[in-house]
């Protein structure tokens, strides 16, 4: 469970806050879409929720534990084992094959051998069973994003955060990615928070939170 309490965010360079007193609770196993116009603060909220960024004031709690109370090593450990990220850009490491890219998070805790089987299975599930040893530049944009999803899931995280994962893809590939996220949410119970500005994709999520000018304007 993720609890967002009175989160307020203002950048030093701007006058008005980007986020104002956001309150939200995301239950275990939910698939939540963050919606809103460009510049409404979706990404900022997601990065604060996902521990990468810190709020100016307010709190984020994972299972009642405030993120601020974690020290750096345990925060890194938490990110490694409990959180997966998918970004608008795939951010694959160009020197590594699909399989090696997927296994990259496991190297942090030296699990690259024990999780190899899972990695191959994940790549099969995203339809890349035949392309395990391809380098990123030998894959299409949609395929690259699917490798990135497999990478986000390799540690079997409790939470998956995705910032416009379909933003750089055509509709066909966007659909594939959305179906994958849906499946992992249903089958593995992964809690997903996804930023999107596409209402069609947002409808696939179980719940939508709309942001307007840094405030929650509507929540289903």
């Amino acid at each position: 469970m993720i609890e967002v309490r009175k989160v307020y965010k203002r950048f030093e360079t701007t006058e008005s806050p980007v986020l104002q007193d956001i309150d939200a609770t995301i239950q275990k196993g939910e698939f939540v879409a963050l919606l809103g116009k460009s510049g409404s603060g979706k990404s900022t909220l997601m990065y604060i929720m996902s521990t990468l960024d810190t709020p100016t004031s307010g709190q984020v709690l994972f299972n009642k534990i405030p993120v601020q109370s974690m020290n750096l090593p345990s925060l890194h450990q938490f990110r490694n084992t409990h959180i997966g990220f998918v970004f608008q850009f795939h951010y694959l490491l160009p020197e590594l094959s699909s399989l090696e890219n997927v296994l990259m998070p496991t190297r942090k805790t030296k699990q690259e051998r024990t999780r190899k089987e899972l990695a191959i299975n994940l790549l099969k599930e995203v339809g890349l069973g035949e392309k395990l040893h391809r380098l990123p530049r030998q894959l299409s944009g949609g395929e690259q994003q699917r490798v990135a999803i497999a990478r986000a899931l390799i540690m079997e995280p409790t939470y998956l955060f995705a910032d416009e994962p379909t933003g750089n893809l055509d509709t066909a590939n966007g659909d594939i990615v959305m179906n994958l996220l849906n499946r992992f949410n249903k089958e593995n119970g992964t809690t997903i928070v996804m930023v999107t500005h596409d209402p069609d994709f947002a409808r696939l999520a179980g719940r939508q939170i709309y942001l307007t000018d840094g405030k929650v304007s509507q929540s289903t």
Binding site: F78, N80, T81, F85, F87, F89, P105, K108
Partner: peptide, 16 residues
């Protein structure tokens, strides 16, 4: 830079 960002988001630390 992007690769550094993704590595950090995977839980790799500054020292890594």
């Amino acid at each position: 830079r992007r690769e550094i960002a993704i590595l950090r988001s995977m839980g790799y630390e500054q020292n890594d």
